[in-house]
Every structure is written in structure tokens, then in C-alpha cells.
């Protein structure tokens, strides 16, 4: 379970997140909407602990532990994982080598790389010359190997074509353990309650909502979080009347 309490963050001397409160319970999928520059990526980067995102007040609590000041890798070890909107290229580091690093649970890398149509990328330097969609799939593959308990996904479907969005939707469902086996004995409800993996997903278009079952939506606007509600309804509202109006009406 992830608890964000009264979190304010400065980036480059400017306050980009203001007094954020958010709780993500085990098994929940949260969707984060918000216009360009609203601070969505900054929120994810802050949760992960990246340099340059200065927490000026507030706490980040993961499974009861205050992780606000922990280094990035310690957060990863405790179950936080992120797929980057714009990951860096590392020359000389082969994709296969990075996947080995991610693979702490001894999964079948070859099989997973086929599932994500990345089997031909093993010998390439990570992210070097990758297309937008290839980056999304590679990020997702790394996360699937990492098996985080809380996955932070930064626009997993932006710039992804119609076929690949199916692959990514499936990958996210597997990542968050949302696939219900055909021969399940328990009821769907029971199965869902057993699942602990949760996610916080940034999306602009909402296309990803067609592939996953999201629980709660939020809008981040000017560094402030508002409008908790059904993600589809929020998306609909945003499409109809725009961010500003949507926030005004919902916060009243």
C-alpha cells in the first residue's frame, strides 16, 4: 500500500507539486490525468526518489515504512517500479544485460521478450535508436521482470500503434496480475481481492482504459490533485469541457 501525505515538491527551484494526498490500496489501479506540464511525471519521479525532485514537505509511505528519503534502489527493492516516459540511452549496455539485471525472480526472459515483440533487441544498446513504441515495450518488459508491488507507469500507451497497444494492455494486466485464469475455482471477486499488485498510470488519451480495469481516476492540474472518481467518467468530462472546467465543477 502506498500513502502519499501532504507532499510538496520543488523542481529547478519551482514548486511543481502542491500538497498532494493519495492512497493506493493493494490491488487498485489508479489513473492520473492532467495537461502537459501539470507535474504528473514529477510525481512519479519523486515517488521513485530521483535527484532534482526536492520534497519540501510531506511523506511517502510504502507498506507502513517512510521511504521519503530512501535512495532509488532501496525503493525498488521494497517493491516500487517505474516505466519511464523518456528513459536515457546507455551506450555499450546491451538490452539483454539490462534485462538480466532486472530479472531478480529468475523468469524466462526469452519468452517474455517474445511476448513483447522484443526478441530482436537483445544485442542493441538499451534505448539507442528505439522508436517511441519500442521504448514503451522495453520499459514494460523490464518491469515485468522486476515484478513491483506498486507499478508507476508514465504514459505507457502514448505513441503506440493499434496492434502494440493490445500487447501493452496485456502486459500491464500481467504486471498487475489482473488476468483471471479460465479454470478458476474462486469467483472473480475473490480472485481480485487476493491480488496485491497496484498501479498508478499516467495517460492523456485514456486509450489504455479499453484494455485494463482501472479503479480510480485523478486529475493533476497546476501541481494540485483533484477530482477523485471513476476514471472513465473523468475522461469523458475532460473531453467534454476541458481540464479547467472539469476541475471547477468537480471540486465544488
Amino acid at each position: 500500500m502506498l500513502n502519499i501525505e501532504n507532499l510538496s515538491v520543488k523542481v529547478g527551484g519551482r514548486e511543481v507539486l502542491k500538497n498532494i494526498n493519495l492512497t493506493i490500496n493493494p490491488g487498485e489501479i489508479h489513473i492520473l490525468f492532467g495537461p502537459n506540464g501539470a507535474g504528473k511525471t514529477s510525481l512519479l519521479m519523486t515517488l521513485m526518489g530521483f535527484q532534482g525532485y526536492h520534497v519540501t514537505s510531506g511523506l511517502i509511505i510504502l507498506d507502513g515504512e517512510d521511504i521519503t528519503r530512501l535512495p532509488v534502489n532501496e525503493r525498488a527493492k521494497r517493491g516500487l517500479g517505474i516505466s519511464f516516459q523518456r528513459p536515457p540511452t546507455i551506450r555499450g549496455l546491451k538490452t539483454a544485460q539490462l534485462l538480466d539485471i532486472c530479472n531478480q525472480h529468475g523468469q524466462d526472459i526469452e519468452k517474455l521478450s517474445y511476448d513483447l515483440a522484443l526478441q530482436d533487441f537483445m544485442d542493441r544498446d538499451i534505448n539507442y535508436g528505439f522508436s517511441g513504441g519500442e521504448i514503451k515495450r522495453s520499459e514494460m518488459l523490464q518491469l515485468m521482470l522486476q515484478k513491483p508491488s506498486v507499478a508507476l507507469l508514465d504514459e505507457p500507451e502514448s505513441g503506440v500503434d493499434l496492434e502494440n497497444i493490445v500487447i501493452l494492455g496485456e502486459a500491464i494486466n500481467r504486471l498487475l496480475n489482473k488476468i483471471i485464469p479460465h479454470n478458476a475455482i474462486q469467483s472473480h471477486k475473490e480472485i481480485r481481492e487476493l491480488r496485491k499488485e497496484s498501479g498508478l498510470i499516467i495517460t492523456h488519451t485514456g486509450h489504455i482504459l479499453n484494455y485494463i480495469e482501472a479503479d480510480i481516476g485523478h486529475v493533476l492540474y497546476n501541481g494540485k490533485l483533484s477530482c477523485m472518481g471513476n476514471p472513465r467518467e473523468i475522461l469523458h468530462c475532460l473531453e467534454e469541457i476541458g481540464y479547467e472546467e472539469c476541475i471547477r465543477c468537480r471540486s465544488n
Binding site: F50, N73, I90
Partner: peptide, 15 residues
């Protein structure tokens, strides 16, 4: 580059 170091740290390895 710091972002390269942190990218790898986000996958669970030390600085």
C-alpha cells in the same frame, strides 16, 4: 550522467 545511474538504480541495483 546522473539520469543513467538512476535509471539503473530504479531496477534495483546500487549506485
Amino acid at each position: 550522467a546522473q539520469d543513467e545511474i538512476e535509471y539503473l538504480m530504479a531496477r534495483g541495483i546500487s549506485e
